[in-house]
């Protein structure tokens, strides 16, 4: 019973977890991308289009690739031209929302139902569970990971020592786009049975960005935080049955906002400093 609940929560949490891993890597390199939600929407839309032409696997890959391409709109101005990252990230979110709807309006799904096979779904869930370990090992034990953390910790010092600041941030931003696109593809293909509609992501991208902070920028912490957000999401049907109706949809946002406030107070009390500055 408990295993079933935990597993069904994982299915709902997977897109937030996947998107959060990508944002985590970028934030460890010292940049924030607020466009996650838009890249998820584009991934969701492109995945449906590609899956209706080819296969669910093609859909997932195309969705992830679309997210990666969308990340360029953020990464090129921010990394190479030092443009305002908040403005660029938000603009990317709005642009990618529009592009996602536009893609959906151009393509007519050929097959009525796209069903992701259970083997493929298991691989995705396994990826969701194992990727934080991989990221943790990458950040801790590889030169590239240490270099990336150094860039996030003190850009000027890292540059002095020969760290490739721009290349690393570019790579991290593109990885973020890839993961957000995959997360969106998972949403439309798995959670909504191969359907895309305007507003499909309903702000889950920002729940992912919040999870990165709640997980204290540590891969395992982020996995735990984003999984917990997914748990709250999976409670919605119960809240709805409780008589809250559409109000139950506000629960994950309110929980994340409250948790963010609490964690900010706690880190100030404990004099914790985030690993990125």
């Amino acid at each position: 019973m408990a295993v079933e609940v935990a597993l069904s929560a994982l299915v709902g949490a997977a897109p937030i977890m996947l998107a959060a891993y990508g944002e985590l890597l970028l934030e460890r390199s010292g940049r924030v991308n607020l466009g996650v939600d838009g890249m998820m929407a584009l991934g969701a839309s492109v995945a449906v289009a590609a899956a209706s032409i080819g296969s669910p696997l093609l859909g997932l890959l195309a969705g992830a690739f679309a997210g990666l391409l969308a990340a360029l709109f953020y990464a090129l101005p921010v990394v190479y031209l030092r443009a305002d990252q908040i403005v660029a990230g938000l603009s990317l979110a709005f642009l990618a929302w529009g592009l996602a709807d536009l893609t959906a309006s151009l393509t007519v799904p050929l097959s009525p139902a796209i069903i992701v096979g259970s083997a493929l779904h298991d691989v995705l869930l396994l990826l969701t569970l194992l990727l934080p370990l991989v990221l943790w090992a990458f950040l801790r034990f590889t030169w590239l990971g240490v270099e990336l953390r150094a860039v996030g910790h003190d850009e000027a010092a890292a540059r002095e020592r020969g760290a490739r600041v721009e290349a690393l941030r570019m790579g991290a931003a593109l990885f973020g786009g890839l993961m957000a696109g995959l997360a969106g593809a998972y949403m439309s293909l798995v959670l909504y049975n191969g359907k895309y509609f305007a507003g499909i992501t309903s702000g889950w991208g920002w729940l992912a960005v919040g999870s990165v902070i709640l997980g204290y920028w540590h891969p395992l912490g982020v996995a735990a935080a984003s999984y917990s957000v997914g748990l709250v999401l999976s409670l919605r049907p119960y809240l709805e049955a409780f008589g809250l109706g559409p109000l139950s949809a506000t629960a994950p946002y309110l929980v994340v906002i409250a948790a963010l406030a609490l964690s900010a107070v706690l880190s100030a009390r404990l004099r914790l400093r985030p690993p990125i500055t």
Partner: peptide, 28 residues
């Protein structure tokens, strides 16, 4: 003609992004 409603927001974002690039070049 089949253009979705969110097109306007996307066009607005596109304008801001290209302005961002134009201004950033100056600073550089």
């Amino acid at each position: 003609a089949g253009v979705p409603l969110s097109y306007a927001l996307a066009a607005q974002a596109l304008i801001v992004l290209s302005t961002l690039v134009a201004v950033a070049r100056e600073q550089r």
